[in-house]
Each structure stands twice: as structure tokens, then as C-alpha cells.
Design a protein around this nucleic acid. Structure first.
Length: 120
DNA sequence: CTAATGACTCGAT
DNA sequence: AATCGAGCCATTA
């Protein structure tokens, strides 16, 4: 499915971890959000939530991964600063029907999308 | 090769 | 309830 992209990136990055992250993030439905920890947990690397964020950094810049749908466990837009503009992340989320106030997603639990639960 | 850092998370104080 | 420290994997210096 994403083989072509993964192969290319795997050659570039030399790791398969990012590839899995991309796949999961791409599977996040519009209007939903997920957390770094949830994705890491789904990949079986719970402790590597940081790497998920790191992967996002490369992913959203290198590939067309909806990184704006991935936030921290509190529903806080911790990664907005890494976008082209700090507003980009919030605007994209709001465009999908997600309310964001002061970088905090409203009704986060309601919009939360857990790969382990949805993809299980 | 060693050390430090990062879009995180959890458990302990 | 708020703050601190440890753990996790990969990248960069």
C-alpha cells in the first residue's frame, strides 16, 4: 500500500519505525485526532512516543502526512510550533470541525481516535 | 564511540 | 494538585 513511499523513506531514514507511524497517521479519519502515545503503543513501542513526534516532524515536511491530527495526550497542540506557521495546525483542525481554544482541543476525548481500538 | 536532545508519557515525591 | 525524574528510540553533534 504505502510500500513505495516506505521503501524510499526507509532507504533515506534507514528505519522502519517512521514507516509505521506514517501509515497509522494517514489512517486517522478527518475530524479525529490521536496522540503520540497511542500511536507508539499501537506500534508496540509505548516508550517511544517522542520518536512518533520526531517522525511527524520529518513526515509532514517530507510526506503528505496529516500531522495536525496528532497531538499530545492532553489534546494540546504541542507540535504547532513545528509547522510552517503556528496557526496552520489549529486552522486545519478547525477546518475539520475540531474546536481549538488556546492550543487546547475541545472535547478531545470525543474526537480521540485510538488506533489500537479502531484498527485492532 | 559517547553524550545530549526531542512534536511524550507515566509514576513517584 | 503540581513538580521532578526516568524510560523509550532515533538523530545529531
Amino acid at each position: 500500500m504505502f510500500g513505495s513511499i516506505l521503501e524510499e523513506e526507509k532507504r533515506r531514514l534507514g528505519t522502519n519505525f517512521f514507516g509505521d507511524v506514517y501509515e497509522v497517521v494517514k489512517l486517522i479519519p478527518a475530524g479525529r485526532v490521536s496522540s503520540y502515545g497511542a500511536i507508539a503503543e499501537y506500534l508496540g513501542a509505548k516508550g517511544s512516543a517522542r520518536m512518533v513526534g520526531w517522525a511527524m516532524n520529518q513526515a509532514h515536511t517530507l510526506l503528505d502526512v496529516p500531522a495536525h491530527r496528532v497531538v499530545n495526550r492532553q489534546g494540546l497542540l504541542t507540535g504547532k510550533c513545528h509547522f510552517e506557521n503556528p496557526n496552520t495546525m489549529q486552522e486545519r483542525l478547525e477546518a475539520e470541525g475540531i474546536k481549538v481554544i488556546n492550543d487546547q482541543i475541545q472535547d478531545f476525548e470525543k474526537h480521540f481516535w485510538n488506533p489500537s481500538l479502531e484498527l485492532a
